[in-house]
Write a protein that binds this DNA or RNA. Structure first.
Lengths: 265, 265
DNA sequence: CGCATTCATGCGTGTTTGTGTACGTTTTTG
DNA sequence: CAAAAACGTACACAAACACGCATGAATGCG
């Protein structure tokens, strides 16, 4: 008794696609919930999960399924073996995002990982100066994307200079993710390039809160161009391996320190 | 029993276009529904879907079809016939570019192929509203890239609206490549979307010369929004298969017609 | 004008695919 | 350790499918 294309129901493949989306956005799926929300028997759902697991797209567990740790990392992020670490950081960073917020995302590979990890259909607005981030979001769904234009610096991978600065004046964001820069508990946030730092400063100013996501090598160092004092940084996402002392130094300055899960692939 | 041009019914190509449109707007199509709403047998609909899938325009699934925007592995399916054709067009289009010029490249898959075909180290400056085009050029070398910012329309794959329009005021280009639109020897250049057409118009105005690169289905048709009269189009790049009559019609209007090499698949 | 060609279509064929049911097994829970 | 929940396998059925063929309309050529 197979009533397949009943109006209002989902196509088999469509159902599987939806399951994958939920996996990405919520981190898990429950067979019984899926059966209820997508209209299908639990048997069909189980078949789907089995099939997806066989394709290596998720991990089958009792009661439902979980995303595979390195599930959605096809081939665009081959910037070294950092991928696992950056993904772990990105997951933690994304947990700070709430529905409906406006995010200001700077260029950079870590931030690209964050953008790729953002949940769909949360009503998020993303403002960015990086074409790769914009492109990644275009290919997904449910994002309002605002691109900052200007001359593109190929080393940075995004627009810099007066124009994006000017466009930023018209933007007000909830959360800001300035890209790779140095951070120090005493002196605050620093950048390596003059133009770049100017833009990051403007980003921080245009946002309610600032989230710094830092790989270990960015810690405690100071660069040449000042971006912001430590008081303007509300959140700091660090790798699992960072010691307690370093974390405490930031906490003492009023920064919420978030620790990523160990990058277990 | 083929009643082909029956008034009120849809031509095969019209039907396929409609299917693609529904695919974009609703995210899925069901074969049975299509057969009912467009007036055709399910066989014909299935044939359409198979054909569209073969061209890489959708993903065929049991019961209907899905857009491949959220598809898992888009890379391996970029081998459809469209790619060969677009590459042949792109090669011809690029031959019109001279060293040191400033190019204005609109969003669209054909234009992306053009950008990918541009020679490096020719001192070219590229102005574009499409993140994918900007990204492709970043990863190569020897290009000056200027990104037009603004709200991004995911269907178009680039910035549209008032902001890129305004930024265009400050740009003067040598050559302009407005993206996919309809062209007719008598009435000129037409677009399908209001906002989009406005931007294309501004692009044409900001450039010394305009190059229209058209796949065969764009020929002789007229859409709803006027972009420019035929006098403002200096070059037209057509596929090899386009007949002599059609080419002559444009030549007579003062358009330089360039014929792409046959697409060697 | 007559003929061959091309093309979209509908129908009949057999095949593939998804689904529900039945029944035995495994895992979790109290 | 026993009950319940979740699971997997086997089977039957119908929907959806691909393929081949004949039909009828438009087109091109002698």
């Amino acid at each position: 008794m197979a009533r397949l294309t009943r109006p209002g129901e989902l196509l088999p493949q469509e159902r599987q696609r939806e399951i994958l989306q939920r996996l990405r956005s919520r981190g898990r799926v429950v067979a019984a919930e899926l059966a209820a929300e997508l209209v299908a028997s639990e048997d069909s759902i189980r078949r789907d999960l089995r099939e997806l697991a066989a394709q290596g797209l998720c991990k089958r567990v009792y009661g439902g399924a979980l995303p595979l740790s390195a599930a959605v990392a096809p081939l665009k992020q081959r910037r070294g073996e950092q991928v696992g670490r950056k993904l772990a950081l990105a997951r933690k960073a994304v947990s700070l995002v709430r529905p409906g917020q406006v995010l200001l995302i700077d260029a950079g590979s870590t931030n690209a990982a964050i953008a790729a990890t953002l949940p769909e259909r949360m009503g998020l607005t993303v403002v960015t100066n990086a074409p790769d981030i914009a492109l990644a979001l275009i290919e997904r769904e449910g994002f309002e994307i605002l691109l900052l234009g200007g001359r593109i610096d190929p080393r940075i991978g995004g627009a810099v200079g007066a124009q994006p600065l000017q466009e930023l004046q018209r933007v007000r964001a909830d959360l800001c993710f300035p890209g790779a820069c140095a951070i120090d508990a005493g002196t605050g946030l620093w950048g390596f390039d003059s133009e770049e730092s100017l833009l990051k400063r403007a980003m921080v100013e245009a946002s309610g809160e600032t989230v710094v996501v830092a790989t270990s090598d960015k810690l405690g160092t100071v660069a040449t161009h000042r971006i912001a004092p430590i008081e303007e940084v509300q959140h700091l996402v660090l790798e699992h391996a960072v010691g307690r002392q370093a974390r405490a130094a930031f906490s003492a300055r009023g920064v919420s320190v978030h620790r990523a899960e160990p990058a277990a692939d």
